[in-house]
Design a protein around this nucleic acid. Sequence first.
DNA 1: AGCACGCCGACT
DNA 2: GTCGGCGTGCTC
Length: 734
Amino acid sequence: MAKCDAADSLILKIAVPVPLDRLFDYRPSELGNSAEFQRGARVLVPFGKRQCVGVVMGSANGSTLASRSIKPVIELLDNTPLLSALDLQLLEWAARYYHHPIGEVVATAFPTALRQGLPATLQCERYFAPTAAGRAPDVDLGRATRQKDLLRRMLSREPAWSAAELAGHKPALRALIDKGLVEPRMPDPSDGPVVLGAALAANPDQQAAIDAVGADLGRFAVHLLEGVTGSGKTEVYMQIIARTLALGLQVLVLLPEINLTPQLEQRFRQRFGVGIETFHSNLTDRQRQQAWLSMRAGVARILLGTRSALFTPLREPGLIVLDEEHDGSFKQQDGFRFSARDVAIARAKLLNIPVVMGSATPSLESLANVAQGRYRLSHLPHRAGNAKPPAFQVLDIRGKKLQAGLSEPLVTAIGAELAEGRQVLLFLNRRGYAPVQICHDCGWVSRCHRCDANLVIHAGIHKLRCHHCGYEQALPRQCPACGVGELQALGLGTERIEETLKELFAGHRIVRLDRDTTQCKGALEGYLQQIHRGDADIVLGTQMLAKGHHFPNVTLVAILDIDSGLFSIDFRGGEKLAQLIVQVAGRAGRAELPGRVILQTRHPRHALLHNLLSHGYRAFAETALSERRAAGLPPFGYQALLRAQAGNAGAPQQFLGAAIQCLTDFTQSGVQVLGPVSAPMVRRAGLYRYQILLQSDKRPALQRLLDFWVPRLADLREARSVRWSLDVDPLDLY
DNA sequence: AGCACGCCGACT
DNA sequence: GTCGGCGTGCTC
């Protein structure tokens, strides 16, 4: 065979996880067969002075580079590609759409273990099932009750149990394996009933939704399931999933929060006798690797995961479910800033499968897509079991005396509810004791020296803490400025409300749920169980109360301060507040115990409140959408935000100035360029932050500008002294 | 992002 | 005399 020059022979195009938006050329290897290097396989390559795990994205005959500068691949890590052609197409599309380096985008598709180059081997001992001996009716386990219980449980459900489910029964499992009654065995979708638990009887609305999505199985469609809290969205998901599984297809279920996975996982395991895996940041690298590989191999049929699970390969993709689609945590807020909701839809389109998205408070983006006929809407307007929607009451607190933020009528209402032996839920979106400490004599206030923000009093741990950079210091006893003044806590946080509630309602059990009380693993579950058992009378908390959990014995919900949300600078502030109010309100009540929601405000006649409370979320959304349309804001305009930050204010300003200069050469615009301006909080964690907002009513126009702009930004010399990032479809403009 | 090279201040 | 500061440049 003739020796050929490397530059004329086959060259591999490799995606390397570095922030450089290009592929790198490599020779297959010194002697290797180039046909082995398939698109989607991982390779170990020399990169500068180090080694990187890259992914084969393609090949070419020859290279534009001098052949001597092209290095050979060190090792082919996968004999079969880990990602399919469609998976790679999705990643390539996402890299282009978000203008993010391809190597980093491809890396996000892999769990950490595979990113590090570990072998892609699926452990057999992930699943266990009773053997023929274990199935025999006359198994005698004597007095080994734990083993007996475990075997009985395992026999109750086919076909196989995952290691995760059996984690709490290791000794009994070991013993059963040693006795030959249980063996490691991969589940086979054909070896047992797929649906175990009986489906609940669907009401007509649920049935219509199930049928609508069911009719679209096997083709691309987006369904928006708008269902009030407690309307049985999960049952609809499960019945559609059952149909998908019956076709021998897999399901990807995306949730906004890790907190919500355990509950749903439990319900799914009771219903479905198939391999179910979870994928979220609370799992170990190894668990995530195994979950990923199980879905890729088709061993597991359902994956429950957060944003990071979106790119998991599916052997037989059938359906994507995305719950709480309005939730902001589907948008990645650093690095590769993708929206898992939008990319999920792009993925479904590529795979030609349907997506079902659900929410009680759909995003305005999704409602606009429904109006334009791109998404199909199914509506579940009724709560299950004839539960009535909560009654809202706006409590005007102007001029009223407040006791730690609680007005007298509210205190009375809480007392009346407690006297009836019912639970009360109080919501305040501010944790800590008080948002600032102030000296009554000299006016000193507790400021963070790294951020344009106040230090928050955390009385429980005797500290002042910055919620933006994490800085903390001991709570001063004397004024650091004048040394003599009396220090006061200004404003309210959940800790302080808790203190007041303890005085006002002594003898009642109060549970506070916020990031501070639930940061410990398992703490949230513990509190939730306590509340469900009825061992709590007053539940007090922040944001996290609005998410997913239902408190059937709660009859009164109070939102202590909505005014800060009414006058947000962010154009999405109104949408977020309306969603919050509806979501918090949805936590309460059931059929025989209707809920009541009290909102304390100094703006009882505010249009948003009036519209939302008298006419409902959809009416609010209509109004908000027409305002957005008039202003050309999303979803009627498309945005991208260029951010820059550095330790001094000059560098980001100069960089953004130069970035604007680049655009003078770009004539075919149709894009508004707003800025550079400082971020609403200029200094954060010691960095000065500035930004440029781009807006256009045509997505292609914005994309054309970014195609021109982003490569040039990377080459600016001013870019070297700042950290910059581009956010396409930003959710927060700061 | 890493990781090198490269030229100027306070230390065993 | 050196250790180490972060500016600058490169990665197939």
